[in-house]
Simulated scan of single mutants.
Amino acid sequence: MKTTTLKTPTPQIPPGTPPLSSPPPGLDTEALAPWLAPRIGPFDGPLRAQRLNGGQSNPSWVLSAAQRSWVLRAKPGPAASLAPSAHAIEREVRVLQALQGSGVPVPRVLGLCEDESVIGAAFYVMEHVAGRVLRDAMLPGVAVGERAAYHAQANRVLADLHRVDWRAAGLGDFGRTTGFFARLIRRWAQQYRASVRAPVEAMERLAEWLPAHIPAGADEERHVCLTHGDYRIENLMFHPERPEVAAVLDWELSTLGHPLSDLAYHCLAWHLPAGVLRGFGDQDLAQHGLPGERAYIETYCAQVGRDPGAVLADWPFYLACNLFRLAAILLGIAARVRDGTAANPDAPAIARMAQPVAELGWAIAQGRAPALKT
């Protein structure tokens, strides 16, 4: 098998693109080129590949040839080695295609390959959108006076997503349309218990409290919308020079769900600390040019036609539910650290945040921690 390994970024990769791993894992570009050419047209020169950091669940590469570039996103291995519902790039492709022309900016898919014999795993190729990814929600690389505008654009695009007519977009069977929170809580309770050797008190309390406090009617079909599932600043590609979302990335957790679950997950940045979890809950918002959480929620509600008073009344539940989910994810990372299977070098530090995150969720549920940061 022939592989390519470049030591420096190709010229087509603009500033702000997620950093490249060093050394990048090999990709068989010789096998890939014949599959790719009919889908993108002839390209001059050899096909090159550079592995991107980020998106570790489904690894990604920037492909380039002469002055053209694309992005390849693959499953991490053959289907036989993965759980049946894991790393479902087919779902990513479906939602990206459904959102074309919707007003939600997404890359255009150029082709899906489910034949694992080509490069050893299923993959898809999409257009390469020029822009920059701002991985820290505090936006340290953006002038203080401009930061609110970037967050306002993130807010607008999330509202646009939640207004998409998912039935008209052909996504009527993209997920179940009732019982969203009940299923979400049950799933992450199972994940948490599968990851730990001894019960975590805050998680046990949340697992009992959350099902009993689902807001009235929240699990009914009338509230359903298309959700991203991992909507945060880090998963947005911004225009290289201005506060404009050029593309929403990483759709592997998208489904039909409740819009306020998406919004609350996005708003965890107001409650998580700076540093390892890249929030700004321990920072002075005004000093850093960041909007208050209440104002942010009210702006969202104005765009989607929701009553902000009703949203804020149930906000502790939506936050606690997402902190429970996040803590379960972090406990899963802790299990991989314990077993020696965690690939991310930052995994131990990230895993140590599991218990504080769970305790914050329980404190918000009990009214012992603020549910709004203004």
Results as ranks from 00 to 15, higher is better:
I89S: 04
A216Q: 05
S22C: 11
F238S: 06
A216C: 08
V196M: 09
W35T: 07
L52I: 11
L72Q: 09
L47F: 04
V248T: 02
L52Y: 03
S85T: 12
G309V: 01
D307E: 03
Q355M: 01
L312G: 02
A264P: 15
G309F: 01
A351Q: 10
A74L: 09
A189S: 14
Y192L: 07
G281N: 10
T17E: 02
R187V: 13
I119Y: 10
A122C: 14
G54P: 05
R183T: 14
I40V: 15
E127K: 09
A295D: 12
A286P: 00
A168P: 11
L206T: 14
A295G: 14
C321D: 06
C113M: 01
H87M: 00
V133I: 06
P105S: 01
A83E: 13
A358D: 09
D284W: 03
K7T: 15
A320G: 12
G305H: 04
D339L: 05
Y296F: 15
D28Q: 12
E252V: 13
L32S: 03
R242P: 13
V125D: 01
T227L: 08
R48F: 14
D219N: 09
L139E: 08
P14Q: 01
R222K: 11
S85W: 00
T4K: 05
L319T: 11
A334K: 14
D165W: 08
H228F: 00
D115R: 12
L139M: 07
G309T: 09
G175Y: 00
V311H: 03
R135D: 05
A216T: 07
K373A: 13
E146P: 07
K75I: 11
R186D: 10
H128M: 13
Q287W: 06
Q355A: 14
V93N: 05
H288P: 07
A218C: 12
P18H: 03
Q56F: 10
Y318C: 04
A74Q: 08
T4Q: 12
R352C: 03
V245G: 09
F181R: 02
Y296E: 03
S117Y: 05
P140V: 11
L72G: 09
P23R: 02
G217Y: 06
Q153F: 00
C301G: 04
R222S: 07
R242F: 15
E204C: 06
P38D: 04
R156E: 12
D282M: 07
V224E: 04
R222Q: 14
L256V: 03
G340A: 05
A207D: 08
E146I: 01
R352M: 02
W315P: 01
A80G: 11
F123Y: 04
H151F: 13
D173G: 15
A313V: 00
G131V: 15
A212P: 13
W209A: 06
Q283I: 10
H87Y: 10
V129K: 09
E298D: 06
R186M: 12
V118P: 13
A351F: 09
Y192R: 09
V248Q: 00
A207S: 14
